[in-house]
Every structure is written in C-alpha cells, then in structure tokens.
Deep mutational scan, measured.
Amino acid sequence: MAAGGDHGSPDSYRSPLASRYASPEMCFVFSDRYKFRTWRQLWLWLAEAEQTLGLPITDEQIQEMKSNLENIDFKMAAEEEKRLRHDVMAHVHTFGHCCPKAAGIIHLGATSCYVGDNTDLIILRNALDLLLPKLARVISRLADFAKERASLPTLGFTHFQPAQLTTVGKRCCLWIQDLCMDLQNLKRVRDDLRFRGVKGTTGTQASFLQLFEGDDHKVEQLDKMVTEKAGFKRAFIITGQTYTRKVDIEVLSVLASLGASVHKICTDIRLLANLKEMEEPFEKQQIGSSAMPYKRNPMRSERCCSLARHLMTLVMDPLQTASVQWFERTLDDSANRRICLAEAFLTADTILNTLQNISEGLVVYPKVIERRIRQELPFMATENIIMAMVKAGGSRQDCHEKIRVLSQQAASVVKQEGGDNDLIERIQVDAYFSPIHSQLDHLLDPSSFTGRASQQVQRFLEEEVYPLLKPYESVMKVKAELCL
C-alpha cells in the first residue's frame, strides 16, 4: 500500500493539533497551500530580480507567473513527485505547466533550498508574528487579574506546605514575570531571523556568478533584492546548502521555554482548584465526569500541561538535527523538520489560546482563602504575639514557653481530632496574655502579614508589564474561544 493518505478522510490519521486544537490561522501558515504558494512567490521574486539585473526574462513571463501564483494543481504535483521522487522539481514542473512561456526560467540558477529553506524562514517569521500578540493578550488578562487582587491576602506555599502570606495578585505576578520573559525572547528570536537568500547549491553562489558572467556586484544585488522582497532586513552571508540548523534550535528553545512557563502556571491553577481557592472557567453544560456528576475538573489547565510537556520535548529534535548536518548538509534534517517545526508552533498556539481562555474567566473564592488563612495564621502570628507581650512588660522566655504549650495543644486538636485551630481562643482565655487581649485582632490582621506584596504588584505592572504590552494595544480586544 502506498504511503500517505487522504487526510480529510475519517479513515486516515490526522494530527489532533490540526484537527482538534490549533487555530485556523496557525494551521494555514503550515498548510501545503501556504507552503507551495510561497515557493511560487519566491520563484517570481527571483525572476523579477534577475530581470532587473539584466537576464533575458520578459515582462510577459513575469506576468504569467504572477497570474498563476494561486493556480496550484495539487493532484498534478503529487503525481509528479511520485514520478520524480523530488518535491521541488515536482512543483517546478507543475508551475511550468500553467506558465508555459515562463517554464524555462522558473528556478533559474537556484537549488531546492532556495524555495525550501527560504519558505521555512518566512513561515517561522509569520508563525512567530501570530504567537506574539496571543502571548501579549494572556499577559494582559493576567495583569488585569493581578491588579484587581493585588491586596487580597492568601496563604503562600513553599514545598506545598503553608508559608508566609502573600497576595493573590502577587502570586499571579510570578506567572506574568515568566511570560514577559517569554514574550521578550519570542520577539528577540523573531527579529534575529535572517533570510537564507540566493546562495546556490553549497552556499557559494557559483551558479549565479556564472549567470551574471562573473559580476560579483550583481550577485550581491540579486541576494539583497530577493531578501528585501521577502520582507527581511538581512540575509546570511555564510550558508551551506541550507541555512544553519542552529536557527531551528533557537526558535524551538524559546517555544519550549514558553511551554515550561505555561505548565507551571496551569499546575498552580490545578492545585488551587483542589484547594477550592480558584477555578478555571466551567461552562453551564460542561460535564466533569461521566460517573461523578459533582466533579469540576480543571480540564483546560490539564490540557495545557499535557501539550506543554510535548512542546518542551520537541527542542531535542533540532538539537540532534543540527549535530548531524555533515559538511554542507545531509538530508537527516528533512523529514524531522517537516514534523517538529509545525508541531512546535501548533502546540504553542494551542496552549496560548487555551491559557487566554482560562485567564479571561478565572474565578476566585475569597471566603475559602480566608478560612485557610484562619487555619494557619495563628501559628504564624506567634512571633508577633511574643513581641507584643514583651512590649507590655512580659518575659520573652516565659511567653515563648506559654505559646509553645498552647500551640501544641491547638495542633493536637487540628491533627488528632480534625478540629479547627483554636490557638487564639486559648490565648484569649489565658490570664497571662490579658495585657494584649485587646491587640489580638490587630495582630491577626492578614494584611499585616503580606509585606509589600501589593506595592510590588503595582510597581511591576507599571514599570515592566504595561510598557512591554504597549506595541500590542491594537490587538488586545480579541477574545479566545474554545470549541473543545
């Protein structure tokens, strides 16, 4: 049975990233139509530049190519590739079939990587351009969430054990800070992308030097003109047959890092959902379990974690691919890159769409948070109580021993009897502590235990987050809708 299948058929496997999760716009960027249309555009740009620099290419040939950029006979191309065992030459023939007058000058002087690699770089750039505003929107939604809850005390956790208090907004800023680093890295790697350009079979530009009869300047002009037509500021000066596969490492490393950030955020949300302090959106008709109707599973956060793990592992592909590119190139890269580049971007696209949807509907339960604080705060307040007693004339050592005994009794009630923490009640009825009984409410005010959390939130948002989001103001209103 021949390899390949009808990918629109229910009898043929289709990647869930495309069929179930990723956005239509990201799927289109990695589609065959987008790819092969870009090949034709690159052939047109090459012909236009070659004509401008004096090669015998007519206006009629150029116009014929322009008129057929979208006229792609995919069936013919597939048949040609089956016959020739070469995808680029299959599309040269297919393009030439609908451009008979231009057929002889299509791909003039070029090698397969002229269309293959340059198209990949265009796709990487455009895919990054799709991700950047999506990530900015996630940051914006979380920034709104953090600002609104900047002063809401909550129990902090280290080692997932109760620690000092923080605020809900401050905790959210930990998430935002990681995503801001990801946004900066995505922008950097996007701006650092260079075009492969017009380089020939081993990167020496020998074929173009021959076409222009040894004119170095025209060869350099050709490279520059096509690079500018493709919208790049610069091209690699040095290439082998391909652009260095280190570029793929750079791009997928940034995406993998984004995956790590999203995994951490969504894990926190899942843990908070278990504590009943916070939940992701839950639709009115949504079913959490087929057997347990009360369940409210954090399905979206779980999906993000599941896909983020996949995204983090994909960076190993370009690392290994770059390491086995012998001399000017081997074909070890080809099949692998067809999979890992598309999957990385479709996965990143999915987790950003999902995280935006989550961040637009996060639900906080202040009463649950308050109750958990009441359970733990008495123990945390013991040092403040000791200091207040010393100020009232008591002995630190005597007070410490009193607190120690009462704390152990209260802990026994919590752990052995399943009761509430009654340390404060014990202190309130103990005559030894009568000098500070009137101060206990103040000493137990949760806001006095959150330090500068709310001020940190305000400063972080104003100095770091809002300036970073400013270039994306025009796209901030787009909502994230999930079908599944």
Rank of each mutant, 00 (worst) to 15 (best):
D6M: 15
P10K: 15
A18D: 15
F30D: 03
Y34L: 05
Y34V: 04
L42M: 06
W43N: 02
E50N: 04
Q51K: 10
T58P: 06
E60K: 11
K66F: 12
D73Q: 08
F74G: 13
F74L: 13
K75D: 13
A78D: 13
L84W: 15
H86P: 01
V88F: 02
F95G: 00
H97W: 11
K101Q: 14
A102G: 08
A103Y: 02
I105R: 10
I106G: 01
I106T: 07
G109S: 03
A110K: 02
G116L: 06
T119I: 05
T119A: 13
D120G: 07
N126L: 07
L131H: 10
L131T: 12
L132R: 14
K134V: 09
S140E: 14
K147V: 09
P162G: 04
T167S: 07
C180M: 13
M181W: 08
L183D: 02
L193P: 01
F195E: 03
G197M: 02
K199Q: 05
A206W: 05
F212L: 10
E213P: 13
D216P: 11
H217L: 09
H217I: 12
K218F: 11
K218W: 14
V219C: 06
M225F: 08
K229I: 01
K229T: 06
T244C: 13
V247S: 10
D248H: 00
D248L: 06
L252Y: 04
S253R: 06
L258R: 00
I265R: 02
D268Q: 05
R270D: 05
E277H: 06
M278G: 03
M278L: 13
Q286S: 06
P293F: 02
R300S: 06
S306T: 03
A308W: 01
H310Y: 09
L311M: 13
T313F: 08
V315M: 14
T321W: 05
Q325M: 12
L331Y: 02
D333T: 00
R338K: 06
R338I: 03
A342G: 12
L346K: 06
A348M: 12
L352A: 10
Q356L: 09
I358P: 07
S359I: 08
V363W: 03
V363E: 04
P366M: 03
R374W: 08
F379G: 04
N384L: 10
S395H: 09
S395D: 14
D398F: 09
I403Q: 02
L406D: 05
L406V: 09
Q409H: 10
A410C: 07
V413I: 11
K415M: 09
L423C: 02
R426S: 09
A431R: 12
H437Y: 08
L440Q: 07
L443T: 05
D445W: 08
P446L: 05
S447M: 15
S447I: 13
S447C: 15
S448F: 13
G451V: 03
Q455G: 08
V457G: 06
Q458N: 13
Y466Q: 13
Y472D: 12
M476V: 15
V478A: 15
